[in-house]
């Protein structure tokens, strides 16, 4: 069983949309587990407040997140296969940037951006699954964060209700729980029988 997980992960291509609290943690978990190719997409730079939950270092403040995360992941595993894209993701460029990905991780901050990405992948990328997050703000209530399969190609993580707001901060601990649910759901999807037969049928040759 474990051998199969590692084999499939090594032959996978996974998109990470947004390299903040979710994305940077998902990427670290996947690289440590032995991910194949990761497409890392974010237009932003590291800012000091990000350090409360994101996988960057103080001396990386001001660097593009794509460059900083790439450097950090290569320190963990020098043979990581990483593709960085410093762009703002839109419905038009998402199918191009994440072309050939088996799974895309939705790691955005804003609710309308989450909506845009999930809708785009589900409606325009028939061979790609998406793992998204809704509801991770605050602290405690660890067990309220759950993983649910909404659709054959859509897994949703979170408590569904805890948005950011006054007095409801994002914490490394609770964001980390959600990010690891996401990474774990990605491993599960890569071994999912239905998804594997979908990938086997596609003609791009990129199937697992």
């Amino acid at each position: 069983m474990m051998t199969t997980v590692f084999f499939e992960l090594k032959n996978s291509q996974i998109g990470i949309a947004g390299l903040g609290g979710l994305g940077s943690n998902v990427a670290v978990a996947l690289v440590r587990t032995g991910a194949g190719r990761l497409i890392l997409a974010d237009f932003d730079v590291v800012e000091e407040p990000n350090l409360n939950r994101q996988q960057y270092f103080l001396d990386q403040v001001g660097c593009h997140k794509v460059d900083a995360l790439t450097a950090n992941l290569l320190r963990i595993r020098p043979d990581s296969d990483l593709v960085g894209r410093k762009v703002r993701l839109t419905p038009d460029n998402i199918p191009v940037i994440f072309a050939g990905c088996h799974v895309v991780a939705e790691c955005f901050d804003r609710s309308d951006q989450k909506q845009m990405l999930v809708e785009t992948v589900l409606s325009r990328m028939p061979d790609t699954a998406i793992v998204s997050v809704s509801g991770l703000a605050g602290y405690g209530r660890s067990n309220d964060i759950v993983t649910r399969r909404i659709h054959r190609r859509h897994v949703l993580v979170g408590d569904g209700t805890s948005g950011i707001g006054p007095g409801v901060p994002l914490t490394a601990s609770r964001v980390g729980i959600a990010a690891h649910h996401q990474a774990n759901a990605i491993l599960e999807l890569l071994l999912d029988t239905e998804m594997r037969s979908l990938w086997a049928r596609r003609n791009t040759g990129a199937g697992i």
Partner: peptide, 30 residues
């Protein structure tokens, strides 16, 4: 009924009794 309706089509997507409607809501934070 299992088919994605894009946001731009919400106003024209007619509803019929008996259909199964799934709504996934996103709150901010990441």
């Amino acid at each position: 009924d299992g088919r994605i309706v894009e946001r731009k089509d919400f106003a024209s997507a007619a509803l019929q009794p008996g259909q199964s409607i799934e709504l996934v809501r996103f709150v901010g934070g990441g």
